[in-house]
Design a protein around this nucleic acid. Structure first.
Length: 575
RNA sequence: CGGAGCGUAGCUCAGCUUGGUAGAGCACCAGCUUUGGGAGCUGGCUGUCGCAGGUUCAAAUCCUGUCGCUCCGACCA
């Protein structure tokens, strides 16, 4: 490709719309342009990167035995109602109404569609296992698109769906995908690690997320360097000990706490109750019904864990207007000792089990109770691990101090079970002629997000440093004169032709620009190998080869192509 | 949806407080010089000042509304 024939609109300054480095570089290197919030055009260079990532995904999915299909992006509302996700996923569904007033959803994922296909076409255990995948445009009605391609309203995703005859077979399918994902990200030049994750509105039994460590990541991961335990903060547990039981059994005592509305305030004189001897009482509306959650004063509720434990996808903190008639007091004086309506469930965090000598709200504005023994004085419906893990807590498995880091989720694999196959009728007849629902798994990779994650991980002060495998072009030839009669340009064209003949992606910067401009742009865009041809080196019968981010090498003209080939050598899918 | 900030040339931004008919740098076009890390000089092009109303003799500037963008929060296969 000739630089002047394609479009690479580099920017000297980062546009104001970009906040994080990878987003700035996407724009500055001329890979994408924004049409609207969370909606982007891929310019020629960005598209080439995207295609390369897609190709790696295809090769590894095919290698793992998955078969490619293409499903519609336009989904009739009805199939989402059948699976129950029209409700549970309503926050992310893009809704469309046609001229006949019929409702459609723009696909954020395609479990329903593929399950309908399987229901129709798969009838026998002899046809299983099957794993279908597609690479397609997906839509999410993001409340707040962010960070360029990281959180977009329209994006490219690879989604795969496995169907198996049994739980064991489904586990095998899951493990195959897990392995394929490791190879995909590694081939893209990404360092990733897998963590246990919450299944969210996907539902299902368990899942792992593939994470790229990055300070700008939107997820937080708890990990242990001792045993390798790693989990999304939304899912993570720790081995932190329960609250100490004390040798006191005094009766509950009510005391006045005018103006005290926070845990913090109660720790101060004259009350001086440490946060770890307080019970925090939260009221949530879960599936339209109020519930009470008890957490130790120095802990934070983990809403995702809470929702997963009670099996809801619709929970929110109750408002003051909802709380007062329920418990007779305002937030700040709430408790679960008295005046709790019989039909309101009380969920308590495990860390409070056995705790006594605790202080909590009296359900009377301006009063608290002390000497509360949670098991004696509070009717707890169910105990769960509900708290948010913090850095340094002992690992749940091995006890070593765990750490927390931020990360970008680029892939997610789920063990689904029969959540979709049952309601949508994807069943088969087994050897004995019994009808059984297929056991499903689903597997997503955010392809466009992966492109940005690579940039986030591979860059320096001058710009992107593309891994060879996904670089828009592997080699950039930079003649310092573009006069067609100059030695530099003639040699540039010769090397260009030879590399092209060898099947190497190469771009020739034929712009009549000053060398500084060309070098800056080549660095900014991030081509892995730059071949500079100017009078200085020509005089010595050499060209200059520079790996991006590496050291200059001077190579004899005759050896140039071979030297470049050595650096740019194809790294095909490992056998 | 709550809070905050910002919308002026293709890009980055000044001008707004204190109203008087729109600017700089970069980019772009022409010419000359220059030619190994975002060149210099000269000349030139570029704007419904986001949009709509209002106040005023006069609005980029003040007021109201609205749309968009960014950030924080809420939310998030």
């Amino acid at each position: 490709m000739l630089w002047t024939k394609t479009l690479i609109p580099t920017l000297r300054e980062p546009p104001a719309e970009a906040e994080i480095l990878s987003h700035k570089l996407l724009l500055r290197a001329g890979l994408i342009r924004k049409l609207a919030g969370g909606v982007y055009t891929f310019l020629p260079l960005g598209l080439r990167v995207l295609h390369k990532v897609e190709q790696i995904v295809r090769e590894e999915m095919d290698h793992a035995g998955a078969i490619e299909v293409l499903m519609p992006a336009l989904h009739p509302k009805e199939i989402w109602e059948q699976s129950g996700r029209a409700e549970s996923a309503r926050n992310v569904l893009f809704k469309v109404r046609d001229s006949a007033n019929r409702d459609w959803f723009l696909s954020p994922t395609a479990e329903e569609v593929i399950t309908v296909v399987a229901a129709g076409e798969i009838n026998s255990y002899r046809q299983l296992p099957k794993n279908f995948y597609q690479i397609s445009v997906k839509f999410r009605d993001e409340i707040r698109p962010r960070f360029g391609l990281m959180r977009a309203r329209e994006f490219i995703m690879k989604d795969a769906y496995s169907f198996d005859v049994s739980d064991e077979a489904a586990t095998t399918s899951y493990q195959k995908m897990y392995g394929a994902y490791e190879r995909i990200f590694s081939r893209c030049g990404l360092k990733t690690f897998a963590v246990e994750a919450d299944t969210g509105i996907m539902g299902g039994k368990y899942s792992h997320e593939f994470m790229v460590p990055a300070e700008t990541g939107e997820d937080q991961v708890v990990f242990c360097e001792g045993c390798g335990y790693a989990a999304n903060l939304e899912k993570a547990t720790s081995g932190i000990p329960r609250t100490a039981t004390r040798e006191v059994g005094a009766a509950i005592e009510k005391f006045a706490t005018p103006g005290v509305l926070t845990i913090e305030a109660l720790t101060k004189a004259p009350y001086s109750v440490p946060a770890n001897r307080q019970i925090k009482t939260l009221v949530y509306i879960a599936d339209s019904k109020p519930v009470i959650i008890l957490i130790r004063g120095d802990d934070q509720l983990n809403e995702t864990k809470f929702m997963a434990k009670i099996g809801t996808v619709a929970a929110r903190p109750a408002t003051v207007e909802e709380i007062v008639p329920l418990l007779g007091a305002r937030p700040g004086s709430l408790g679960a000792v008295a005046k709790v309506p019989a039909d309101v469930k009380v969920f308590a965090d495990e860390r409070l089990r056995g705790a006594n000598d605790m202080t909590t709200g009296a359900n009377e504005d301006g009063f608290h109770l002390k000497n509360v023994s949670i098991e004696r004085d509070i009717k707890v419906t169910e105990w769960f691990d509900l708290r948010t893990v913090t850095a340094g807590e002992p690992c749940a498995r091995c006890g070593q101090a765990s750490k927390i880091r931020r990360a970008i989720e680029v892939g997610h694999v789920y063990k689904l079970g029969t959540k979709f196959s049952e309601p949508l009728g994807a069943s088969f007849l087994d050897e004995s002629g019994a009808r059984k629902p297929a056991i499903m798994g689903c597997y997503g990779i955010g392809v466009t997000r992966t492109v940005q994650a690579v940039i986030e991980q591979c860059n320096d002060k001058d710009g992107v440093i593309w891994p060879l495998s996904v670089a828009p072009y592997r080699v950039c030839i930079t003649p310092l004169s573009v006069d067609p009669n100059s030695e530099a340009m003639k040699l540039a064209e010769k090397i260009y032709a030879e590399l092209t003949a060898c099947g190497v992606d190469v771009i020739l910067d034929d712009r009549d620009e000053r060398p500084g401009v060309k070098f800056k742009d080549a660095d900014l865009v991030g081509f892995p190998i730059r071949v500079a041809i100017g009078e200085k080196s020509l005089a010595k019968g050499e060209v200059e080869i520079k790996p991006r981010g590496g050291a200059l090498q001077f190579v004899k003209i005759e050896a140039a192509v071979e030297a470049v080939m050595k650096l740019a050598g194809e790294n095909q899918r490992p056998a």
